[in-house]
Amino acid sequence: MARPGDVLHLGEDRLTFLTTSAETNGAYLEVEAEYAPASIKPPVHYHPKQTERMQVTSGRLNLLLDGDLREYTAGDEFHIPPNTPHSLWNPGPERARINWRTTPAYRTEKVFETLWGLTNEGRLRPDGTPFLQMPLLVLGFRDEYRVVTGRPHLLDVALCTALAPLSLALGYRPTYRPAQVRETQPAT
């Protein structure tokens, strides 16, 4: 379980938990994310029942929101409504930092720990491989995070449901808690 001040690292990117879902009884989760220049653009995805509110505190960020490219700089605030396909990245050249609130929290802390931890350790690549890890992530986090695949979501769920037993039998897990990546910073 994430605690305020816990930090996840992904290469030069950093995510710090500011307010956890335990502190808000699940109402929201708040983090600070810091992205290196020209960070990798994450896949287009959406959150079926969650709203994201972000405020850029330094640098600039690009947001692809429902097919429309937008740029934000320090002081800008924006919202991403539920079910809206989007991707967010730092186009460079300086570091970018945002305060990010997800409402309601659901299991978003575990999403961050799992995706950042597996990717940081080379166990999950930006292209979604290894293939057999994906069914467990799709099923485990379907209320929090869905990648836009071009296929109907129910078809993705059916395919993942069929593959999940094989994934589990081969030792893949639906969630992951990074051991070496996690460190606690003093709360301020």
Rank of each mutant, 00 (worst) to 15 (best):
V44I: 15
S21K: 00
L65C: 14
T57M: 12
E183D: 13
Y172Q: 05
G150V: 08
P186Q: 08
H153Y: 07
K41Q: 07
L18V: 15
V31N: 14
A187L: 12
P152L: 02
M54I: 04
Y145H: 05
V44W: 13
R14P: 11
A36I: 12
P4W: 00
R125Y: 00
P82T: 15
W116P: 01
I40D: 10
T161W: 06
T119N: 04
E32V: 00
L136C: 02
C160W: 11
H9C: 12
A158Q: 10
T20K: 04
R173H: 02
T149D: 09
Y176F: 12
A96E: 03
A27W: 00
D13H: 07
Y172E: 12
P174N: 02
R125F: 13
E32G: 10
L132C: 09
K110G: 07
L168E: 04
D143Q: 09
P104V: 10
G122I: 11
Y46D: 09
V56Y: 15
T119V: 05
G5H: 09
L139K: 01
M1I: 02
M134S: 05
L8Q: 11
G128N: 08
G171V: 13
G67N: 00
S39D: 00
D143L: 09
W89N: 06
H153S: 03
K49R: 14
K110L: 09
Y35W: 14
L64K: 15
T161C: 03
P85I: 01
I80H: 12
A22P: 05
P130S: 13
V7D: 13
F78T: 04
L115P: 08
N99G: 08
L8E: 11
F17E: 01
N99P: 05
P91R: 08
D143F: 11
W116S: 08
R70W: 04
H79N: 10
